Simulated assay, not measured.
Amino acid sequence: MSGTAIETQRLILRNWRFEDRWPFAEMNGDPEVMRYFPSTLTRDESDALVGRIGQHLARHGFGLWAVERKEDRQFLGFCGLARIEFACPIEGDVEIGWRLARHCWRQGYALEAASACLEWAWAHRDFQRIVSMTADINEPSWSLMRKLGMEHRPELDFLHPRLADDSPLKPHVVYVVDRPA
């Protein structure tokens, strides 16, 4: 997707810009946005994440794109696709993921962006399936996964190896959507 944006009725999913870093860091510092992650991120940690996202985009030609609202060009967060590169039952698969600023919640933006990412993936890549994972207590995310037509695959659920054994976030659920016929 380098150079080309995905557009929906209300959104543009695009490559990251330098000016996205500040609102992204602000979002990653919000305890409510990061509720289902081990911790909030510092500005340096958030900037490092932008760097890793950029490397993934350059390496694979797809990734976690910045989400911008067309109406006012405001940065809302990210949505996109990423290869899972750690040891777990879905290692090597492509995951769809999203993170939006709290002021964007419950307005249909995540569903709109994620649906567009799936459409892009089926049209431009030969993925046989796309997965999504989250902490099993993250009902908002697995609710969105279901709205995307994804199905829970309990045989793929796992204990996240990068989280402490006593973390309530360690148990992860996996949802899958297969390539449309």
Rank of each mutant, 00 (worst) to 15 (best):
Gly51Ala: 04
Leu169Ala: 08
Arg125Ala: 11
Ser167Thr: 09
Gly29Ser: 07
Pro161Leu: 00
Tyr36Asn: 11
Gln107Asn: 09
Thr4Glu: 11
Arg99Leu: 02
His160Thr: 00
Gly77Val: 03
Leu169Ser: 08
Pro23Lys: 05
Ala82Ser: 14
Leu111Val: 10
Gly77Ser: 02
Gln9Leu: 11
His103Gly: 02
His160Asn: 03
Glu85Met: 10
Asp178Arg: 15
Asp72Gln: 05
Glu45Lys: 06
Asn28Pro: 01
Arg102Pro: 03
Asn15Pro: 11
Asp136Leu: 13
Glu68Pro: 13
Arg35Trp: 06
Phe86Trp: 15
Phe24Ser: 01
Gln74Ala: 15
Leu100Asn: 02
Arg125Lys: 12
Ile84Lys: 08
Leu169His: 11
Glu68Val: 15
Ala181Gly: 10
Glu151Trp: 10
Thr4Leu: 07
Gly61Glu: 09
Leu13Glu: 07
Met34Gln: 05
Met27Tyr: 02
Arg179Ala: 12
Ile6Phe: 05
Arg99Cys: 08
Leu144Cys: 08
Met133Pro: 06
Leu144Met: 08
Arg125Ile: 01
Gln55Asp: 13
Gly54Leu: 14
Lys170Glu: 02
Ile12Pro: 03
Arg99Thr: 05
Val50Ala: 14
Asp93Gln: 10
Thr40Phe: 06
Leu76Ile: 04
His152Met: 07
Arg10Thr: 08
Ala116Val: 00
Val173Lys: 14
Arg162Val: 00
Pro89Cys: 04
Arg162Ile: 01
Thr8Phe: 03
Phe78His: 09
Asp44Glu: 14
Ile130Trp: 10
Ala121Met: 00
Leu76Gly: 01
Ser115His: 06
Phe158Met: 03
Glu19Val: 14
Phe37Met: 14
Leu64Gln: 15
Ser167Arg: 10
Phe18Val: 14
Arg102Lys: 14
Glu91Val: 06
Pro31Cys: 06
Leu169Phe: 10
Asp30Met: 01
Ala114Arg: 01
Cys79Asn: 12
Ser2Pro: 13
Leu11Gly: 04
Leu57Thr: 00
Trp22Glu: 15
Arg73Ser: 13
Arg106Ile: 06
Trp16His: 12
Leu111Ser: 09
Ser141His: 00
Leu156Tyr: 06
Thr4Cys: 04
His60Met: 12
His124Asp: 05
Arg99Glu: 01
Glu19Cys: 12
Tyr36His: 13
Thr134Asp: 12
Leu64Ser: 14
Leu41Phe: 10
Ala66Thr: 13
Ser141Glu: 00
Ser167Gln: 08
Ala101Gln: 06
Ile12His: 07
Pro168Phe: 06
His124Val: 02
Ser132Ala: 15
Arg83Asn: 14
Asp166Gly: 05
Gly97Cys: 03
Ser143Gly: 14
Trp142Arg: 07
Thr42Ile: 07
Asp178Thr: 14
Trp142Lys: 02
Arg162Met: 11
Leu81Val: 11
Gly77Asp: 02
Glu26Phe: 04
Gly108Glu: 09
Glu85Ser: 13
Ala110Ser: 08
Asn138Val: 00
Arg35Ile: 01
Glu95His: 02
Trp98Val: 07
Glu112Tyr: 07
Met34Glu: 04
Gln55His: 11
Ser132Arg: 08
Glu91Leu: 02
Arg73His: 13
Ser39Cys: 13
Arg146Asn: 08
Leu144Lys: 02
Asp44Ile: 07
Gly80Ser: 01
Thr134Glu: 10
Arg179Trp: 08
